[in-house]
Structure formats: C-alpha cells, structure tokens
Amino acid sequence: MTDNEVVIKTDGLSLWYGKNQALKNVSLCICQRKVTAIIGPSGCGKSTFLKVLNRMVDLVPNVKTNGKVVYHGKNIFDDDINLVNLRTRVGMVFQKPNPFPKSIYENVAFGPRIHRKPKKDELNEIVERSLRQASLWDEVKDRLNDPGLSLSGGQQQRLCIARTLANDPEVILMDEPTSALDPSATLRIEDLVRELREKYHIVIVTHNMQQAGRVSDDTCFFLNGELVEADKTKTIFTNPRDSRTEDYISGRFG
C-alpha cells in the first residue's frame, strides 16, 4: 500500500471513556475507493473507532484520546482543525434512519444550504443528484415535499445517505446502517454501498458478518478495543491469520 492510496491513517490510537479504555493502540489505514468493514463483538470498540474518524466521539463527555488520526496529512486532533469542515468531508450515516422532521427535499437541501448557500437552481441540482446517487430519486421525485418520515425504513436510510452525499463528502462512515432494516431494504443499501465505492471511501461498521463479506474490500476485526487483524475481506473470511478472528467469523463467540 502506498501513502497515496491511504485516505485516513490512525497511528497508536487509544481512547478512554472516563477510566474505561475503549481503544487500545490502534494503527490502521483506510484506503481509497474501497469499502472497509469493521467487525467485532459488542463492546469491541468498532463504533467508537468509527466515531473518532470525524471526531463525533467528542460529543461524549469525559472522552480522552491518545495517538493520531491523520487525514490529508494532518492530525485531526490538532487544535486548528476545523470540525465543521472535517465532518462535512467525513460524513456519517447512523444505525437508525434519522431524517429531520422536514420534507424529503429539505432533508437533502439542509446541509448545502447552510454550508454553501447555493442558488435555487443549483440547490435543486444538488438535491436531485444526491437522491439519484442514493438510488431514491425515482421513488420520490413526484413527492419531494412529503415529509421524510413518511418514507419506509429503507427509503429513510437512503434519504439519510442522500443527505450525507449532498454535503459532498470524501469519506462516508456508516455505523450499522442496515441493522434496523428488513432483508430486501438491507440488500438495496448494500448494492448502493458498492456503487458509492466508485466515488467515495467508505468505512462500515457491521454486526452482520455476511454483510461485511458481501460489501467490503477490506475487513478489520476488533476485539476488546484492539485491532486483531486487518486484511482483504476474502482472506479474513477464508483464511484469517489469527485464531481469534477465525473463532469470531466462524460464529464461535461474539
């Protein structure tokens, strides 16, 4: 892997919630145009790791970090980092679809309107492009003024993805994005993730190992706050190096 291919690099990253250490010395590279899956049992630190990458974790009280997260050559913990910019470039999609209590159009238009103050035509374009990229446009184009919350769960999640895309991110973090969805909505999102990979770098946390197998190029296995193994997904699922990884993906614990 060359440095050119690395988008985010964590170096000796540790994190504590109060006295409780949630991440232990994690050094990991997130690569360009790839889907990186983070797997591991509950409490292993995978969601925490994801939330560090755009400093979402700052919102939790009593958090302390050590080590570096380097994005575009800069440690995101540096004092002069612009958090709004960081979170715009490193967008996030959450476990439960959480559209704003606004219209479909307004949900997508919300971010760009604040950040870029575009003209009406331009905003319309951004909304349409984002909804198209999120594979939702055809289903909602005739009812853009309906409330976002009137959509089905799977559509709401795609709306949230469109909302993230509208901010023109570079990296998309997904925290168990399909755990609240039914199987067909799940597969739809998985297809979407594969499509988005052409333009964005994606990190996805999932409880569903088969999902990691289906959507990701690289897989990282976390256990008790440590990164146990990171490799190509194919290798992790067919011939992992570490016996703890083997036990986890074979469903023998977790």
């Binding site: 190992m209 088969q210 197998g213 699922f237 067919t238 011939n239 992992p240 990884t245 083997e246 993906i249 074979s250 469903g251």
Partner: peptide, 10 residues
C-alpha cells in the same frame, strides 16, 4: 443455512 467461514468453510 449456517454461513460457514474460514476453516469450517474449507
């Protein structure tokens, strides 16, 4: 039905 992986799958 069981989605075996790694050595189980092999």
């Amino acid at each position: 039905t069981q989605q075996p992986a790694a050595r189980d799958l092999r």
